[in-house]
Design a binder for these strands. Structure first.
Length: 288
DNA sequence: GCCGTAACGGTTGAT
DNA sequence: GCATCAACCGTTACG
């Protein structure tokens, strides 16, 4: 039997084909990891939580080598539903990562006009409380009872609009952060390093990336509206197998390519055809 | 026996 | 700091 990290000893496993959920039989198992449970195949899982990355990797890797899902399921002791789900997602997105868990849709709590009005109130009277602002919005007829933002929403608007600038804290993820970074030591170093990587015509010279250990090549976004997870996973795939995942081959989109410093600050970005990106990253992978 | 998927109980994190 | 809610998770059972 192959031993996977986190696997429980044989004696802790329950009998296969036991109907846990529908019969109400106990299925909690005390494991060295804590709140583990054991599935019908004898594998350990934590309800509600994604499988560990190394198992997800293994599933994709085995499928890549032509192993059938049912065999993967039995060997890794992961339910076939889960194997199917992970492989389907991988085919569709090129990502082995679980989706973003938790959170809720951003609620449109106030229109831009209302936000502007809140800012104005705050500007005129910096000591004004959120509930006072709420009252004033109603009194001035800016909002009606049903549409007026909650006190916590107003607080959030104030925090977002005034909080960060007051303490001089820039969010490195947004554009402001990017600008700020350019004036940092990291930013200056990055700019200098990148200037060596750029050919006179503005193209990134991929071959020169190899000479800079402090710099790493990054596919930041496969599509402007998609998450970076997918692209990082695609890059992982290239590192593992030396080729782009199936879903990415012959992809009509373009990829945003950047060179970034060890600190992760974005310094320059450039749009290139996906095929060119994967061709170049594969070459880099092979040389390394 | 294999596969896709609905239902389920659970977790997470933004609001 | 707490409650709510909608996203996700992996397992099970069914067709």
């Amino acid at each position: 039997m192959s031993s996977l990290p986190g696997e429980v000893p044989q004696r802790m496993r329950l009998f296969p084909r036991q109907n846990y959920y529908r019969t109400g039989l106990p299925l909690d198992v005390s494991t060295p990891l804590g709140q583990g449970r054991v599935n019908q195949l004898g594998g350990v899982f934590i309800n509600g939580r994604p499988l560990p990355n190394h198992i997800r990797h293994k599933i994709v890797e085995m499928a890549h080598h032509g192993v059938r899902p049912c065999v993967i399921s039995r060997q890794l002791r992961v339910s076939h539903g889960c194997v199917s789900k992970i492989l389907c997602r991988y085919q569709e997105t090129g990502s082995i990562r679980p989706g973003a868990i938790g959170g809720s849709k951003p609620r449109q709590i106030s229109t831009l006009d209302v936000e502007r009005q809140i800012e104005e109130y705050r500007h005129d009277n910096p000591g004004m409380f959120s509930w006072e602002i709420q009252d004033k919005l109603l009194k001035d007829g800016v909002c009606e009872r049903g549409t007026v933002p909650s006190v916590s929403s107003i607080s959030r608007v104030l925090r977002n609009r005034f909080g960060k600038k007051d303490v001089g804290e820039w969010d490195k993820k947004d554009e402001d952060g990017e600008k700020a970074n350019k004036h940092s030591i990291d930013g200056i170093l990055c700019d200098k390093a990148l200037s060596l990587l750029l050919a006179p015509n503005g193209e990134i010279q991929f071959s020169k990336l190899l000479g800079y250990s402090a710099l790493h090549f990054q596919i930041l976004s496969h599509h402007p509206f998609e998450s970076n997870h997918r692209n990082q996973s695609a890059y992982q795939h290239i590192q593992l197998f030396g080729s782009a995942p199936p879903a990415f081959q012959n992809c009509p989109f373009t990829a945003l390519v950047s060179a970034s410093y060890a600190a992760g600050s974005l310094i320059k970005a450039k749009w290139l055809p996906t095929s060119a990106v994967f061709a170049e990253t594969s070459k880099i992978h092979q040389i390394q």
